[in-house]
C-alpha cells in the first residue's frame, strides 16, 4: 500500500505521514524544503519509514521525480495533496509574484502531480488539503482562490475517476502548526476567541480525518469537502 504525501515537512504533512505510516502504508514523502529530512528522522525514531523526495512540484522535473520514486513501489493507493504556502496581503496591495506563487504551489502542483500519478492508481483515494479560507478570508485573495480551485479540482476528478478512485477535500481552519504559531499572540488569541471549540485544531486531528477518507470505511464518500474548523464557519 503506497501513500504519497506532499508538503511532508510541515506540521500537518508530518502528522499525515505519521498517521498513514501507522496504518501500514509505504510512504513517499514529498517537499521542496530540506527540512523534509527532519520529518524523516523524527518518524524513523518512531519506527516509521518514509521515502523522501525533495522536489519542487511547480516544475515538470519535480513532478517527474515524484513519479519515478513512486514507480518503485507499484500502484498508488493514497495521494494527499497537502503542499501549500501563504503570501498574505489585501487584494489592492497583492503583487503579481505573490499571486502567482500561491496559485502555482497550492493548485497547480496538485493538478500536475495528480495527472501524473492517476495512471499508477487502481482502486485509490485522493485527498486534497484545501482550507476553510475557500469560504473567504480577509487578506488571502490568492490563497482562498487557490483553495477554492482545489475544491473544483476535487469535484471534477471525483466525477471523472469514479468508481475506482475517490476524490475528497478537507478544509482545515486554524491548526496549531508553526505557521499558526507565527501569528502575533494578540491576533491569534482573537482568532481563537471566534472559534466555538475555543482552541486551535491539532495536526493529528486533520491527519485522522484524512486517514478516514483514505480507507474503505469512507467508500461511499466522494467529491465532498469536509471543513475541520471547530465551528468557525458559523460564528461571527
Amino acid at each position: 500500500m503506497t501513500a504519497v504525501v506532499t508538503g511532508a515537512a510541515g506540521g500537518i504533512g508530518r502528522a499525515l505521514c505519521r498517521r498513514l505510516g501507522q496504518a501500514g502504508h509505504d510512504l513517499v514523502a514529498v517537499d521542496v524544503s530540506s527540512r523534509l529530512e527532519e520529518s524523516v528522522a523524527m518518524l524513523d525514531q518512531e519506527g516509521l519509514t518514509m521515502h523522501p523526495v525533495q522536489a519542487d512540484l511547480t516544475t515538470i522535473g519535480g513532478v517527474e521525480a515524484v513519479a519515478a520514486a513512486v514507480r518503485k513501489f507499484g500502484d498508488v493507493q493514497v495521494l494527499v495533496n497537502n503542499a501549500g504556502i501563504t503570501r498574505d496581503s489585501r487584494l489592492v496591495n497583492l503583487s503579481n509574484d505573490d499571486f502567482k506563487a500561491v496559485l502555482d504551489v497550492n493548485l497547480g502542483a496538485a493538478y500536475r502531480l495528480t495527472l501524473a500519478l492517476v495512471p499508477m492508481m487502481g482502486r485509490a483515494s485522493i485527498i486534497n488539503v484545501s482550507s476553510r479560507a475557500y469560504l473567504g478570508n480577509f487578506g488571502q485573495f490568492n490563497y482562498s482562490m487557490s483553495k477554492g480551485g482545489l475544491v473544483g479540482l476535487t469535484r471534477a476528478l471525483a466525477l471523472q475517476l469514479a468508481p475506482a478512485i475517490r476524490v475528497n477535500a478537507v478544509a482545515p481552519g486554524l491548526i496549531a502548526t508553526e505557521m499558526a504559531m507565527g501569528i502575533p499572540d494578540d491576533v491569534r488569541t482573537r482568532m481563537i476567541a471566534a472559534i466555538p471549540a475555543d482552541r486551535m485544531g491539532e495536526p493529528e486531528e486533520v491527519a485522522e480525518l484524512v486517514a478516514f477518507l483514505a480507507t474503505d470505511a469512507s467508500s461511499y464518500i466522494t467529491g465532498e469537502v469536509i471543513v475541520i474548523g471547530g465551528g468557525r464557519s458559523l460564528s461571527r
Partner: peptide, 14 residues
C-alpha cells in the same frame, strides 16, 4: 473549468 469557477467563487468571497 472547475478550478477556474470555484477559484473565482472563493476569490469573490474574500
Amino acid at each position: 473549468r472547475a478550478m477556474v469557477a470555484m477559484g473565482l467563487l472563493s476569490a469573490t468571497r474574500t
